Simulated assay, not measured.
Amino acid sequence: MQSLQSFMIALLECSVAMTAIGMLYMAASPFLRKRFAAKGRYYAWLAVIVGLIIPFRFHPSTSVIDVNTLMPVLKHADADRSPIDQAVSDAASTATSMPWYALAGSIWLAGVLAFLSYHAIRHRRFVNMVKRWSTDMVDRQALQMLHDVQAKMNITQKVELRVCPVISTPMLLGVVHPVILLPSDRIPAHELLFVLKHELIHLKRKDGVYKALVFLATALHWFNPFVYAMAREIALQCEISCDEEVVKDTDMAGRRQYAEAIIGMIRKQPSTSSLLVSRFYGGKQGLKNRVLSIMDTRSKNGAFRF
């Protein structure tokens, strides 16, 4: 039971500490955006995610309050209490005989299992839906474009290209056996080039593994509402950093075309998806930040470039 108590204390401490760090980092984002590259800002979040997954504890060597010193005082106070007060205290102690950490641990574990089960079922349903409705890409021009982009990016891993009528924006599914899914609406060739490069950058950087770590941190701290806000911010930074890679060494006209492609892709709200899927869609809330980042040609501090 002592180990459970230590674990619960460590979990709560790291949740509060990492939340404070994450909120400060989010508050500083407008300043950091002007000075540092998006990729560096994105990977800096890993420190917070690792801190949430592995509960670090930094305690002083000496306690601020010496329990042994307080014990005689507490005993003396108990001796001075009336019989009625003593009876009420004993009754309260009996009613709360279950340690707080045992109750908190049970609730926490139930929440983790519920969170994992819900998203596992949702992900499995999404994968099954995609397998049922998607078909192989037959457009030779699109397949050749995928092959050319892969060769240019030195990606030797086999990547499937499929069309799925039940999605409204392109997305990357899978890490070991990656599949790029495209909506059934025809995508112009110049926009498709941007889409394929965007999704292949996700694949090359192993963003699926990063998303899995964020998912695990969110599951462990499901009770902390700020963790969900940080997860959304990381997802947005993932897309912004990917945009930055796509338009790197691109002139203003190319950047404008890419921004227009993103706006065109998010006209329709995606009907369904999964937390473990990389989507071209970044959300309307983050659209403004993405477009501003795409059109930003200022040189950034190389210290945060990877």
Rank of each mutant, 00 (worst) to 15 (best):
S63P: 06
D148S: 05
L113I: 15
H147S: 14
I167C: 06
L143I: 10
V227K: 08
K204Y: 02
Y43F: 15
E244G: 09
G105R: 03
Q157E: 04
V175C: 08
V88G: 04
F306V: 12
A104C: 01
Q257S: 10
A120S: 11
P83F: 00
K34T: 09
A253T: 14
I240H: 02
G51H: 01
E191V: 10
A261C: 14
C242H: 00
K284V: 09
F126H: 10
A87N: 03
Y25L: 07
P99L: 00
L46W: 05
R41F: 04
Q5E: 13
S271A: 14
I262H: 13
A79C: 07
V112I: 13
S82C: 05
M8P: 05
S293G: 13
K268M: 09
V112L: 02
L193S: 12
K204N: 08
S168L: 06
R298K: 12
L146M: 03
L12Y: 04
G40E: 01
F226C: 07
S117Y: 14
A20H: 09
S6I: 12
P72F: 02
S97E: 13
M129D: 12
K248G: 03
I65G: 05
L292P: 02
R122M: 11
L276E: 06
A87H: 01
L32S: 09
A110S: 11
G286E: 01
S61F: 07
G283P: 03
M8W: 00
A217F: 02
E260I: 06
A142E: 13
S3M: 12
Q86L: 15
W222G: 06
G22K: 02
A235G: 15
W222H: 15
V163N: 06
I49M: 04
M26A: 13
Q237G: 06
K206W: 02
T169W: 05
R162H: 01
M230Q: 14
R57S: 15
L143G: 07
L24T: 10
D148Q: 12
H177C: 08
F226V: 12
A91G: 11
D249W: 00
F215V: 05
G40Q: 01
I155V: 05
I180Y: 00
H76Y: 09
I49N: 07
M71L: 14
Q141Y: 01
N154C: 08
A77Y: 08
I155S: 07
A229F: 07
P188D: 14
E199K: 08
D251N: 15
T297W: 00
V67E: 13
C14F: 01
M18Q: 15
S278D: 12
A261M: 13
S278Y: 09
N68D: 13
E260M: 11
F115G: 07
S82L: 10
F36A: 10
L52R: 09
Q285P: 03
Q269W: 07
L103T: 13
S6A: 15
E199T: 10
D249K: 09
E239F: 01
K284F: 09
F194V: 12
T96P: 03
